[in-house]
């Protein structure tokens, strides 16, 4: 396997690991559900996409085959993970989970009051 290709795979894997760790620390440290959901749904998605792209390049250069399962996994996670984040955030708002003290405006409550 070529050294340049190996470095590209290594950079993708390290970037994915870094983004996954960043999202985990965001989920641990941010103050309320909505900001935690923001951290978890965006950053984890991008990290996993980087790792899976590294896997796709790895199997393409070692076997000479583009693995369609990895490609489908990339597409599916890219489509569904933000949708799941939206659904659970709306469910959290409907069940009355409070915003944190630092938040300054709440547009849904203002529109319902009208």
């Amino acid at each position: 396997m070529n050294v340049v290709i190996e470095w590209i795979i290594a950079i993708f894997v390290l970037l994915g690991t870094f983004l996954s760790l960043v999202s985990a620390f965001g989920v641990l440290r941010l103050p309320d559900v909505y900001t935690r959901n923001h951290a978890a749904s965006k950053s984890t998605t991008l990290g996993v996409l980087c790792t899976l792209l590294g896997t796709l390049i790895f199997f393409y250069t070692s076997d000479g085959v583009i693995q369609s399962r990895v490609l489908l996994g990339i597409l599916f996670i890219f489509i569904t993970s933000p949708v799941a984040g939206h659904l659970i955030s709306r469910a959290a708002y409907e069940t009355g989970v409070d915003l944190s003290n630092y938040s300054v405006r709440d547009d849904i409550a203002r529109d319902k009051k009208k």
């Binding site: 994915g16 996954s20 999202s23 985990a24 989920v27 559900v33 935690r36 959901n37 978890a40 749904s41 984890t44 998605t45 990290g47 996993v48 790792t51 899976l52 996994g73 996670i77 993970s81 799941a84 984040g85 659970i88």
Partner: peptide
Amino acid sequence: VSLDAMGINLAA
């Protein structure tokens, strides 16, 4: 939310 993120981490 965090279980969903754990599931996606498991894929990685």
